[in-house]
Write a protein that binds this DNA or RNA. Structure first.
Length: 153
DNA sequence: GCCAACGTTGGC
DNA sequence: GCCAACGTTGGC
């Protein structure tokens, strides 16, 4: 089983939106970064655990835990001319972008803020999230980091 | 709202 | 293949 972190803007789709979905499950569309896509396409498996992270908000941080319930399949928004995720260069016979489905597991007792994660110093220094200029929206989390971060809760 | 960091695009 | 220009991300 692997561990991941997925970013989302709470104004657009936050942990509360996920909780409110039928079956508390939602597909993760709109990923348009190759590195993030490759993680979904090649490495995400059913049962993998996910930190749900709120970005681009007043207090960015990890707010909850979700689980992968469906592995990569084509992201339909790439073929929708009305979608902001439309990609006219994507070939329907060889879709460029994929998505997975995740299911809500729980909220953390409190938000574990980016500030706090950065303050852990050497404990998390090789965690991509706290490194300079990180913009990756989906990233792997080592078991060691996963356990350590949860110990902060 | 600002702006640094980064990814992508496209001319050459 | 290089790299300048541009667009986006996301913390602050």
């Amino acid at each position: 089983m692997k561990y991941w972190l997925m970013k989302s803007e709470p104004d657009v789709f936050g942990i509360d939106h996920l909780m409110a979905r039928p079956d508390q499950t939602e597909h993760w569309d709109g990923v348009r970064n190759y590195q993030a896509r490759n993680f979904m396409r090649d490495d995400m498996k059913v049962g993998d655990q996910v930190f749900f992270y709120h970005s681009n908000t007043k207090v960015p941080g990890i707010v909850g835990i979700a689980e992968v319930v469906r592995e990569a399949y084509p992201d339909h928004t790439q073929f929708d001319p009305d979608s902001k995720y439309h990609d006219p260069k994507s070939d329907p016979d060889d879709p460029r972008w994929v998505m997975v489905e995740i299911k809500f597991k729980r909220k953390l007792d409190r938000i574990i803020t980016l500030r706090e994660l950065k303050d852990q110093g050497s404990k998390l220094q090789d965690f991509k999230l706290v490194q300079r200029g990180n913009r990756l929206s989906i990233m792997p989390v080592s078991k060691k980091h996963w356990d350590y971060i949860l110990s902060l809760e």
